[in-house]
Design a protein around this nucleic acid. Sequence first.
DNA 1: TAATTCGGTGAACAAGTGTACGCTCAAAAG
DNA 2: CTTTTGAGCGTACACTTGTTCACCGAATTA
Lengths: 204, 204
Amino acid sequence: MNRQAQKQKTRQKIIDAAFTLLEGQKSLSSLSLREITREAGIAPTSFYRHFSNVDELGLTLVDEAGLTLRQLMRKARSRIQSNHSVIQTSVDTFMEYISQQSTVFRLLLRERSGNSAAFRFAVSREVSHFTQELTDFLIKDNRLSSEIASLQAEAMVKLVFSAGADALELTEVERQQLSKRVVTQLRFIVKGAEAFAARDQRSK
Amino acid sequence: MNRQAQKQKTRQKIIDAAFTLLEGQKSLSSLSLREITREAGIAPTSFYRHFSNVDELGLTLVDEAGLTLRQLMRKARSRIQSNHSVIQTSVDTFMEYISQQSTVFRLLLRERSGNSAAFRFAVSREVSHFTQELTDFLIKDNRLSSEIASLQAEAMVKLVFSAGADALELTEVERQQLSKRVVTQLRFIVKGAEAFAARDQRSK
DNA sequence: TAATTCGGTGAACAAGTGTACGCTCAAAAG
DNA sequence: CTTTTGAGCGTACACTTGTTCACCGAATTA
């Protein structure tokens, strides 16, 4: 068998093992090398053929989680085309992803304020992408000034991610109730930003 | 010397040692018993005379952090009496506390989405107090319906805490810029909630 | 004064950790 | 076919970890 392919395969085994362990209550920095290799079914020392550190593996996982996040955005956008309530659709999509990919979101939301500066930075980068895309959308779709759009987007993302973190602890029905609250709260922000934008227009 | 007082004193030494270690990049659950006792200058086994677990110590720390939070609220309220911009004053007070008591806030903000369910629960209890007090204030001061007040308060607290988490990574000047953004974003929420309240009034 | 309580200690244990080193043996290169 | 490469393994080492146990000695009680 192809040597390169084989290596890639065990590398994936390591990544999968880490994700499996993360499904429990563990965080990235509490994963031990030996734990991971045990789960992956390889010798502890083999780990070093793929990553020089557990931290390096951690950054890889954050990157993969970022991919999921971008996938989420794409899905939300594609749904908005057909359906008209942008906010409702977006929140629904977000919550759906949290249910389906709970391990990935747990990873992101935990490491966002976790102990490792490197992880925090990596997550914050991903969330920035998210915010930037929303900002662009608001400028184009709602014809807001870039300043107000950016403030609005930032507030909305913070609110949604914060609610997402809460959602991880909740049952399916509680999650739906939370969704309704979040939708209303987002509408507060939209309405408020509109009012500010109108005032800005008038004063010009 | 009084035996009881002496015991209290070493108990405090343990708590102080834990806080000192937390000033680094460590989280509650990554603190080890021996680490703590080493820092406190006592024998590892002495720890058990005061706490049966490191987790039990952790909950004590969260409680102490909650005290600081309530102190913050009191301070903010007392300042609002004299000054008129409620939002500006509150955000300033919050950011000031984050600067001064950064370890405490790091603890709260980290454990809020940390690995331990017990810690998460304890923190969420403290944040709930915070939200509830703000809700009451909004009902009394802004004459909002309890439903809208609660939604508004929840959104505001989520936004402020989320910004607080960001602030921990920033320099003093960046923090002031962030404060300005947050104040505007909070005004979005207030304006938006007002609009919704007005609509509710009309429809009745 | 004599007896008891109890906070703090040191030694010891089993279990877990990261990592260095040299080996195998099949794939890749010559 | 021979040589080189390199992924994976086993052993070993030095550490750290939580917890048990019997013990000391001063403060407290009788």
